[in-house]
């Protein structure tokens, strides 16, 4: 087993442990404590139509791409 596979298994184990399979760690922010998180100012992508456009503006003019949290591919940027 190579090093990358081993790291993935470690990652999987930790995430599963955090997912509720383990009873030792409980979610520490209760549903009734999430008012602030639900406020529009906490929304990463308030309006998808506007976010998609500004991503396209930068993607067409910069060499870097990806890890923007949105689906992509085939932007027709030539």
């Amino acid at each position: 087993m190579n090093n990358t596979k081993a790291k993935c298994m470690v990652l999987a184990s930790i995430l599963l442990a955090c997912s509720g399979c383990s009873t030792s760690i409980k979610p520490w922010v209760k549903p009734y404590e999430r008012n602030n998180l639900a406020d529009p100012v906490m929304n990463w992508q308030l309006d998808p139509i506007a976010s998609a456009y500004i991503h396209h503006v930068f993607q067409a003019r910069e060499g870097a791409r990806g890890a923007e949290g949105t689906s992509g591919g085939g932007c027709g940027c030539n």
Partner: peptide
């Protein structure tokens, strides 16, 4: 220039909805 692409994404909430894991794949042909 013609570009066609197909996207597939999965998003999963867990740990009392405090954590969201997502992954996706796209395939494009120009």
């Amino acid at each position: 220039f013609d570009a066609k692409s197909l996207h597939f994404d999965v998003s999963q909430d867990f740990f009392g909805d405090l954590t969201t894991l997502s992954f996706g794949f796209s395939k494009g042909n120009d």
